[in-house]
Nucleic acid binder design. Structure first.
Ligand code: MN
Ligand code: MN
Ligand code: MN
Ligand code: MN
Lengths: 227, 227
DNA sequence: GGCTCTCTTTAGACGAGACTAAAGCTCGCC
DNA sequence: GGCGAGCTTTAGTCTCGTCTAAAGAGAGCC
């Protein structure tokens, strides 16, 4: 068994390298919430364990083995998040903190049972894909709300779960995965977006809108809300 | 926050002192699964934290503060055990191992939600009482199956959860809390007991029967006359 | 080609917990 | 009342993961 600290490093490195390939030490440190020296230290340990390759002075990348562990942890995390919401009624801005700890301490048995209880789900409450048990994820890039043109319709597919405050705000506005939206207008120079949800219109700042992944709806009639 | 190791020591000491008052170092060590030296070490640390009183060469006892923590952990443990069984369908011989880890990593929020989902239960799957949130337990001594006389009836109230193997055996025999039993006969000199459950009769070794807590039923129909 | 700023790594230390080996108490037994 | 057996405690190490301070690499700029 690998210790929850190691698991969190692997998860952090995995997510960072999804976006930018090889990951600088300082990025790992920042992600995990630790000094650069501590990150260097752990990176060397991961390399010794065969979980990462360390390229001194130019970052880390996970090995196959490291990625596999990272995906297992992410699977745990997202299954737990969904379970907390669906089975225990957690609000979606609280599931991440709880899952962050539990992900390291559940058994395969527990994983399998909540997976079954949820009907073998494929996405978590924020729309993040749940890796399969054999370690594959379908994590393709989604267009953002900011990629839409005025007059276009879309369905929200994914929101960032990095900030509970923001999740609470989005929930208040009714902006969850599965919800159909219509972009009425957008101000120029990365200004705010005017977005309709049902029959109310919200004004969203550009940065916030850029964190919302959507699936475009080209058909004219209003897309049926999926939830 | 106290670290799961400290919590397990406190829980262990609490259970030992329930039975025998002040607890010898070696008993703590054995319970926690650690050498005597390690136990001494931790006991001193607990004393410094104000959680225990160390009487060198003559054992430990918990302070009020230590007992409070122990009871919180035990509450977590037993709620989790029951939740695993009731909500996720775990067999009762597997709940202890899972709860042993999770008990240290759930939030108060989680505790409250599973408590509510279970309808504020008072006993766990093995019949052990669940401490209340304010730190009180109703843990009175129950007579054992071995305290019954031939011809007496009783209801099983509690079994020991220390051994998964034994739990599996008891489950196979249908001997759970809540089940009514009838002691037909017992062999002398701590010999086996002949116990009826429903309309089948089982032969139980004395040691096994001594781990089963029962509530006597005096109101039942008079024992078959034996003259 | 060299300087300098920034990022990264090394060095040294610390706390939590564990272990082994050795020394120190207790207590029962003679 | 003294001895030895068996607990218990001390002493010294180890691993994991963290930190601060100092030293080392790299890359852009002159
Ligand atoms: Mn985590
Ligand atoms: Mn998520
Ligand atoms: Mn435990
Ligand atoms: Mn139990």
């Amino acid at each position: 068994m690998l210790g929850s600290v190691v698991e969190d490093y692997l998860k952090g490195i995995y997510k960072l390298q999804q976006e930018h390939g090889r990951v600088p030490t300082s990025a790992v440190a920042q992600r995990v919430g630790v000094t650069d020296a501590s990150a260097t230290n752990m990176i060397k340990r991961l390399a010794e364990l065969g979980l990462a390759r360390h390229h001194p002075y130019r970052g880390v990348e996970l090995t196959e083995a490291g990625e596999k562990v990272a995906l297992e942890v992410i699977r745990h995390h997202r299954l737990i998040e969904l379970y907390l919401k669906e089975a225990l009624g957690y609000p979606w801005d609280q599931v991440d903190a709880e899952a962050e700890r539990l992900e390291h301490h559940i058994s395969e048995e527990f994983e399998d049972r909540i997976d079954a209880a949820l009907g073998h789900p494929t996405v978590d409450p924020h729309g993040d894909p749940i890796p399969s048990k054999d370690g594959t994820v379908d994590d393709e890039y989604l267009p953002r709300l900011t990629d839409l043109q005025p007059g276009e319709r879309a369905v929200i597919r994914r929101v960032s779960d990095r900030d509970a405050e923001r999740l609470r705000y989005l929930a208040q506005l009714g902006l969850y995965p599965g919800v159909a939206v219509y972009l009425r207008e957008r101000a120029p120079f990365n200004g705010p977006l005017f977005v309709r949800v049902g029959d109310t219109e919200h004004v969203l700042g550009h940065d916030l809108a850029a964190t919302i992944g959507v699936e475009q709806r080209r058909d004219a009639e209003p897309a049926p809300a999926e939830r």
